[in-house]
Computed example of a mutant assay.
Amino acid sequence: MNFTIKTFSELTTTELYQILQLRAEVFVVEQDCVYQDVDFKDQKALHVFGLKNDKIVAYTRIFKPGDYFENSSIGRVVVAALERKFGFGHEIMKASIKVIKDHFNEDTITISAQKYLKKFYESHNFIQVGEEYLEDGIPHIRMDTK
C-alpha cells in the first residue's frame, strides 16, 4: 500500500470526509464509545493515509514535538474492519514512524495506546511508560519508542 502525507489544508473535502467517516466507524460505532473525535487538533497534524479502490482504509495523524505530547506523536491509528487481515496496521505504523523521522528528524515518539493493542505497538519498538488510565472510557497506556 502506498501512503499519502498531507497537512490539514492540503486535504481535499473528499479525503477529509473519508477520514472522519473511518474514524467514526471504528472509534465511535465499532468500539461503542461516545466521544468528541473532531477535536481541533487535526489542523496541527500531518495526515497519513492509504487508499484501496479510491477509499481511505488506513489512517494516522502525526504531531511534531510539543503539539500533543512533549515528543512527536502518532494518534488516531485506524484501519477499516474489513481490511485488517492484510497487515495495513503494521504498514501504516511503519510509514508513520518514517514520516516523523523524515519531517521532524525525531526518533522519540509517544502514543496513547488502547491497552489491548500493547503487543501490536511493542512490535514497533514502543514500551509502556506509567500506569493504565481511562481515556474516553477505554483503558489506555502511554507508550514511548525505546
Score class of each variant (00 low, 15 high):
K94F: 02
E83W: 01
V48C: 15
A80T: 07
K55Y: 09
Q21V: 11
E30S: 09
T108L: 13
K52Q: 14
A45N: 03
F69C: 08
Q36A: 14
R142V: 13
L134F: 12
I127Y: 03
A81M: 07
D107T: 13
E135W: 02
K146Q: 05
F88T: 02
V57Q: 04
K44N: 14
F69M: 01
V77K: 02
V57T: 12
F27V: 08
F69K: 07
L82Q: 15
T4W: 03
S9E: 15
I97W: 02
Q18V: 09
Q114D: 11
K41P: 00
G87I: 08
R84Q: 08
F8P: 09
V79K: 04
F49D: 10
I109F: 09
I74C: 05
G66N: 02
F104K: 08
L82E: 15
L20D: 01
I92P: 07
F49P: 02
V79H: 08
I5L: 14
V26L: 09
M1A: 13
K94R: 14
E83M: 12
A81D: 12
Q128K: 10
D42I: 06
E83Q: 15
F69N: 07
D107N: 15
I74E: 04
M143I: 03
Q128N: 01
I111C: 10
V34C: 11
F49K: 06
G87F: 12
P65G: 10
S112D: 10
M1K: 09
Y133F: 15
D136S: 11
K101L: 04
I109G: 06
K52R: 15
K64F: 00
E10I: 05
S9G: 08
D32S: 14
K6V: 09
K85E: 13
A81C: 04
M93V: 14
H47Y: 11
E106L: 06
A80G: 01
S9W: 08
E70D: 14
F120E: 04
T14P: 00
Q43H: 12
E83S: 10
L46K: 13
Y17K: 10
L20C: 11
K55P: 00
Q114C: 08
K101Y: 05
E135T: 07
V34P: 03
F40E: 14
D144T: 13
